[in-house]
Design a binder for these strands. Structure first.
Lengths: 218, 218
DNA sequence: GCATTACCGTAACGTTCGTCATGCAAACTG
DNA sequence: CAGTTTGCATGACGAACGTTACGGTAATGC
């Protein structure tokens, strides 16, 4: 070999980051190699040098955006305890700035494109399971106390919080103009507190954690 | 004129329904006029006869799927009272059969394609506001009683329930194999009951309904 | 200093797809 | 029955795009 490939992966990341920006602004279906190259000030020859195909580029971009967000969420989970830990993760996830807004928009675009592929749907389900597991660990110490022998299913509770946060994040990320951060945070805290403070509700059934079966998938 | 156009709109609906099926299976980006025509046993000449362009066909399909779901939800709301009314609407929305699964998948695909267009994002926001308003009217008679002068903001509560139901529906619609109806319904009832039964939570702030400001947008 | 390899611009190719013009047969009108 | 309109097939056109081959340049190893 003659030339080092030290900044090779770094260059791939720069390209994928630009691709994510294009997706967030113009949409996944209008992401073309020519436009992306022009955005970076190069030509398509540069892109094909770092990625064997467009599919590989798009896949790398997807992994990058998802993994970055998940890593930051886990990092936020280490900086607090109990209820504040949950809040830290949630507020790390909410689209409070442009960077996170684009992340969520990219996610929405990718999920839309995953509709038509069984393989992509499976990959998405795996990612969701990771989120559910994370939120289950966050809400477990906060779960309502026992009541009449029925324990609250923390797996389901974590899943509910995760789905609510995801729904909020996507809705806020698509909203224009953006909702102020304070409003987003206040709304999230209020509604999550509702989910957590509830004792066993009237119409709601709770399963014993002993015979614990997850809602997600077998 | 010589030939009646009575079944003209009906024919457009058949085409759009087939388009929705293709989108749910193969994805929006792989919906081509040739394939859709082949699916219907005709050629592209038939499609261009009923729609001036592909965009028009896709737009009609979107409206059809969304309006049908919203209409059925409103219909379900008229068949019960109080808490059962909310349950009826939720269980009408959940992807309990193939028809509703495809509806949600089509919705996910369209929302993904709306990321890149400011106009489509606005249209989506308008549709979301309709859902929030519907759920606000559903949860208003079920809202927790006053407590210490702070009333629960029913607009925010309805929005939270709507977002949770949407998140559940999308997640379940993408899941393979499908989650049994009973599990979906049980999960929905449990978590919605949590949101409704909660008194004012510890960390949660509630605003007076007097100075009522919506979370969605100004 | 020479061969090799990384890096990237250029341009052409082939495919896919939406669109449109044309034509024809069936059905309705008068 | 003649004329007109509908319903749809056929085929071609042109644009967009991913891919690939080729070429040149600069940097590195020996």
């Amino acid at each position: 070999m003659s030339r080092p490939r030290g900044d090779h992966d770094e260059r791939r990341e720069v390209i994928s980051r630009a691709a994510a920006a294009v997706i967030a602004e113009r949409g996944l279906e209008r992401l073309t190699l020519r436009d992306l190259a022009a955005e970076l000030g190069v030509t398509t020859g540069a892109l094909t040098h770092y990625f064997p195909s467009k599919d590989a580029l798009v896949a790398h971009t997807k992994e990058l955006v998802f993994d970055a967000r998940y890593a930051r969420a886990r990092l936020a989970a280490e900086q607090a305890e109990g209820r504040e830990r949950l809040h830290a993760v949630v507020e790390e996830l909410l689209p409070l700035d442009d960077e996170r807004r684009t992340s969520w928009r990219v996610l929405v675009a990718f999920r839309g494109s995953a509709v038509g592929s069984a393989e992509l749907r499976r990959a998405h389900a795996v990612r969701m399971r990771r989120w559910f597991a994370l939120f289950e660990s966050l809400v477990t110490p906060l779960a309502p106390a026992d009541r009449g022998g029925a324990r609250t299913d923390v797996a389901e509770l974590g899943m509910a919080v995760a789905l609510l946060v995801e729904g909020m994040a996507i809705h806020f990320a698509m909203l224009e103009p953006p909702l102020p951060s304070s409003r987003q945070v206040a709304f999230a805290r209020t509604q999550i507190a509702r989910l957590l403070s509830a004792a066993d509700a009237g119409g709601g059934r709770t399963t014993r954690t002993a015979g614990r079966r997850r809602v997600s998938a077998p």
